[in-house]
Structures are given as C-alpha cells and as structure tokens.
Design a protein around this nucleic acid. Structure first.
Lengths: 213, 213
DNA sequence: ATAACACTGTTAATAAATTAACAAATAAAT
DNA sequence: ATTTATTTGTTAATTTATTAACAGTGTTAT
C-alpha cells in the first residue's frame, strides 16, 4: 500500500466508477474482466484503465485480465475508510429525497444516516429508511452520530447559512447541490455541483456539433 | 467572434458559472466586477478568470474591471444558441422533479418543456410548469416540439432502453443521471453524472485529510 | 516445438489545464 | 509632476491528465 497518497484526482473518480462497473459484472456471474471491457463500460480507453490499476498497485493475470472480487476489495481499501463514513442530507425536498433513495440499497461503507429540513410536514418522518429531523437539531445529531459529510440540497438562499453551521459543527466534507457557491475553510473538502452548468455545457456542444455540418 | 471554436472544455463550464455569478452581482446593483471578485465567487484564481475572458475575446477596463452586462451578453452569445434549445426530462421521480423545479424561474435560452414517465399517477399532470406525458408519447413529442436535449432520471434498469429511444428519435445531447452508463453514437453528446462517485470522492478526501494529522 | 495471438504493465510522448510572471495602463496620492 | 497602488492582458512555465508505443508473457493453434 505504498505511494497511494498521491493518486490523481481523476483516478479517484474512476476508481469509484470501476467499482460500480465491477459489481455489475459480478452480478452477471463474471469472475474476471479485461481492461477493454471495463473501458467500454465507462467510455474510456483500455490504457487508462490499465494505468489506473497500475497506480493502485494491482496486477491482473495475463490471460484472464483482472480478478473482479480482488479488484473490488482493493478499491474499497483505498477509497473507503474501514470504520465507514456517515453522511447527512440537508434539505429534504425532491433532490434530497432523490439522493436518499438513490443510496438506499447500494451497499457501501458510506451511509446516509440523517436528513434535515425546516418544514414541519417533513420532520420526524422516515424516507427510504432515513429519518428526517428539524434543522435545529442538526448540530446535535451530527455530533452524536459522528457524521462527517453533508450533502446540501437546500434552496440557494439558505446555502451560506447552512454551510457555515456545518463547518462550525465539524463536518469535514460538503457536497453542495445548491445553485449558490459557498465558502468553507481549507480543512473542509468542498465539491460544488450545479445542474445548470452541466446542461448548458451540453447545450453548447449540441449547438457546436450542429454547426459543423 | 474568431477562434471560439476551440475553447477548452473547462472554460465552457466556467463561462456558465461566470454568468450565474455575474447575474448575482447584477442583482446586487453592481455594474463592474474585478477578476479577483469573480474568482472568489467561484473558488478559483483571478488568473484563470482573466485567461478565460481573454479566450473569449473580451476586455475589461483597467480601473473598473469588467462591465457586467457586456460580459453576460458575450457569454450568452457563445454558449447559448439564438433560437434557444429545448430539453425534456425522462423520469418524473424525485430527481426529475427536482431538476424541473430547479430550472423553473432561471431565465435562460434553455428551457425544459416536457417530462415523461410511465406512472399513470404522474402523466397528464403539470409540475413546476412542465407537463408530464406518458413515455409512449416521447418520440412524438420530442419531434413535434423540436426538443434537442434529454435529461435521464429513470431507474438504472431502464437507462439503456431510454437512451436508445432518445437516440433514434434524434436527440442530440443527453445528460444521464442514472447510475448506469449508457452508449450512444458519436454524434450525440453524452454526459454521465453519478452522485455516488461524487460522494465517494469526497469521502476519500475526508479520510485522506484526517490521516494527515 | 514454435509461431501467432491477445493480453498486461510501464515508460515515454503528447495534450490539456493551470499557474506564474510581468509589461502596460491608469487612477489616486503625494 | 511623479510616485504608488491596482488591475488587466498575455506569454511562458509548470503541472496534471491522457494517449501512444511496445516489451513481456501466458495460451492456443499448428
């Protein structure tokens, strides 16, 4: 387990995707997989697959490619933490619910253990196995349940306030699905994702492609 | 408007984000903005902002920075298409609804004009101003309404089938929020996004950061 | 046996993206 | 008037990411 400290960021992303692809293959009763098969599933090149796998120090066999279970385990050893990590969703609207149900059933070391909302109709209900609490209890529950990560799905107008509370209570990673970027200190890992950017990017390339004829 | 054919992909993404940041500033009654202000809003460096803006051929003024309205218009000229583009959402579950309501009110050239679902409880209803049709009507409506882009929010098990239909009916851009990657021909622009990957990546960096002490 | 094939693993080359460095310009301050 | 402080625009350097190239090797076919 050497050198793994400096895995490229993109490789980390792909490891997660490899694992999911591997699990699908496993379900199809496969035991081994070739780099080009994995590549096809992810729309990337076989070289990239081999290189990533090299970087994590795994070796396949020449004739059969990679042993699926072994590779899954190794990826887990790298990207999961043994104890597991807990996440919460802040904002139990459509997006919050979508995320919670999305995770439900997917067995990872990562679990969503709480949702928070301000709406009385939602608090004290359980959605897809995850209880929803009033946001006033957020700090208390994050601490008592030892939650390290938060997914923000509140309206943009609330984003700054929520992020601030999360940082204060000691959250270490934030995934912000709000349309409003937030600021956090350096020791908190922040990822912003905006659907509009994604769609506008697609729109741009659609337009561009259409102009090339 | 020269050379804009080869804008880096990352620059395209940022242009969309710049525009949103600029609109916020405009709402705050600002008329000009400095590269470092824009940078701070997006958590990037001022150099990157200046470089991107250079690439699209805009110039600010030395003392006041960039003229917000002008810049917004220029970005629009690059990433929007004049006629506008229409998108649909396939799958009217929580995620589909979240996306529809997310776009609602955001005024862009990009509009979501239809949703599709298989569930009779959902079809023929209007959510956030967007009508939901039965998926059997998808091809017909995409053609008649001249829809060019689709956002897939169906269950993973349906992904391949839906993508195939979309391609056949002539969709030019697909945003796949399904956990299952799909295959499309080269002339269709595809973007896959998986929330689990995002969260696992955050988990990895949280773990990594915590080990660095 | 040995040739042909189909893989992996890895280094080297290339391309893409980011950052550094600094000249040029202009307002404000002295 | 001249200096100082800022800010842009742009080239060059650096870093990061991807792709190409190919040696090494087990397997199969002849």
């Amino acid at each position: 387990m050497i050198m793994l400290n400096k895995l490229p960021e993109k490789t980390i992303e792909r490891l997660s995707q490899y694992r999911r692809a591997l699990l699908i293959s496993l379900n199809n009763l496969k035991h081994h997989i070739y780099s080009h098969e994995l590549a096809a599933m992810l729309h990337i090149t076989p070289v990239q697959v081999r290189r990533d796998i090299m970087l994590i120090g795994y070796s396949g066999t020449l004739r059969h490619g990679y042993e699926i279970k072994e590779l899954i385990n190794l990826i887990g050893a790298i990207i999961d933490s043994e104890e597991g990590q807990k996440a919460c969703v802040v904002g139990s609207g459509n997006l919050g619910k979508a995320i919670v149900s999305y995770f439900n059933g997917k067995r990872t070391k990562l679990t969503i253990v709480a949702a928070f909302d301000i709406n009385p109709d939602k608090v004290n209900r359980v959605y897809a196995g995850v209880p929803c609490y009033h946001i006033d209890q957020m700090s208390k529950i994050i601490k008592s349940d030892n939650i390290t990560m938060a997914i923000m799905t509140v309206p943009g107008s609330e984003a700054a306030r929520v992020a601030e509370s999360l940082v204060i209570v000691g959250i270490k990673g934030i995934l912000n699905y709000t349309p409003t970027p937030v600021n956090v200190p350096d020791n908190v890992y922040l990822q912003e994702y905006d659907m509009i950017t994604s769609l506008e990017k697609i729109a741009y390339f659609v337009k561009k492609n259409s102009q090339e004829f």
